[in-house]
Amino acid sequence: MDKLDTSVSLESLTPAQVRALIRTKDHTGSTSGLAKGYLQANLLILPADWANDFLLFCQKNPVACPLVGVSEPGCRYIPELGHDIDIGRDVPEFHVFHEGQFTQAVYDLDELWRDDLVIFALGCSFSFEEALIQAGLKVRNIEQNTNVSMYDTNIACLPAGKFSGNMVVSMRPFTPKDAIRAVQVTSRYPKAHGAPVHFGDPQAIGIDDISKPNYGEAVDIYPGEVPVFWACGVTPQNVVRHSKPPFCITHSPGKMLITDLLSNALAVL
């Protein structure tokens, strides 16, 4: 790719241009608001002998884990997501787990890759943020240039094989009127978690302090607004901590794989 004009904002770049910056480690931050209109994906990478159980977990929990692609064992490519994507290099940051415990963050998988690893790509709520903006709604984490706020909850996922655990949610605040519109807009995007799973009282889903997200960053909630919660693709990381596979790699929360798939191509009209 030609050298980018440094005066060009990240938000105006194509998916391939953003991935090029990520591959050279010139962008290692959040991908919220980048490559507008294109599907972003959460990642979970597991040994092949755990993969079938996680596939079943996704099938049982499609709101939290909307599957958009699966690799062959040992392959770092999922061609249907983009022909030039090397998943081992095109994500801003990865998290590595051993026996369910986070052990390190890395910026590529060159030294960790194994021939038995299977990649699962899951839809992400970042993909519907542009649709919310086009509907006239303000997305607070984009307004404030922060990572989205994400929280552990008491909402249990359906167990499958070796996997079980609770849902993680992302939060965006809206007035009640705008929250209704947000439900209407995001319901069209089941591969990006679809409609919210809760709005209003955070304690009802096990969140004691809305100002202290478990992942991402806190955003302002203005008077008259209510927090609106969507299922989040960080759910598999919570499930990994609970289920303790011997080895696992995920994306870092908020730092996604940007695909070449148009979000609207997967929308329900």
Rank of each mutant, 00 (worst) to 15 (best):
A35W: 10
A35E: 01
G37V: 02
G37R: 08
Y38W: 13
Y38K: 09
Y38P: 10
Y38Q: 01
Y38L: 10
L39H: 08
Q40D: 06
A41D: 00
N42L: 09
L43N: 05
L43K: 02
L43R: 05
I45S: 04
I45K: 00
I45T: 00
P47K: 03
D49H: 11
D49S: 08
W50L: 10
W50F: 14
A51Q: 05
N52D: 13
D53E: 09
D53L: 06
D53S: 12
D53N: 01
D53H: 06
D53F: 10
F54C: 05
F54G: 11
L55E: 07
L56Q: 13
L56T: 11
L56R: 06
F57K: 01
F57G: 02
F57C: 01
C58V: 04
C58A: 07
Q59L: 01
Q59Y: 09
Q59S: 12
K60H: 08
K60G: 06
N61S: 04
V63E: 10
V63P: 03
A64E: 09
C65H: 07
C65W: 05
P66Q: 04
P66W: 07
L67P: 02
L67R: 02
L67N: 01
V68K: 03
V68W: 02
G69V: 06
G69W: 10
V70L: 05
V70P: 01
S71N: 03
S71W: 03
S71E: 06
E72L: 13
E72R: 10
E72F: 06
E72K: 12
P73Y: 01
P73Q: 02
P73V: 05
G74I: 10
G74H: 01
G74P: 07
C75Y: 03
Y77I: 12
Y77T: 14
Y77K: 12
I78M: 00
I78G: 07
I78A: 03
P79K: 01
L81Q: 01
L81T: 04
G82D: 00
G82K: 08
G82R: 06
H83F: 15
H83I: 15
H83M: 15
D84H: 13
D84T: 14
I85N: 07
D86V: 00
D86T: 05
I87P: 08
I87W: 03
I87G: 04
I87F: 05
G88W: 06
R89A: 12
R89I: 00
D90N: 12
D90M: 09
D90P: 07
V91K: 00
V91M: 05
P92M: 01
E93S: 15
E93K: 15
E93L: 13
E93N: 13
E93T: 15
F94P: 09
F94Q: 08
H95N: 15
H95C: 15
H95R: 15
V96Q: 03
V96D: 09
F97I: 11
F97M: 10
H98L: 11
E99V: 11
E99S: 15
E99T: 14
G100T: 06
G100D: 04
Q101C: 14
Q101F: 13
F102I: 12
F102C: 12
F102W: 14
F102K: 14
A105L: 09
A105W: 06
A105N: 13
A105E: 14
Y107T: 14
D108E: 09
L109H: 04
D110A: 15
E111C: 12
L112Y: 11
L112H: 04
W113E: 12
W113F: 13
W113L: 12
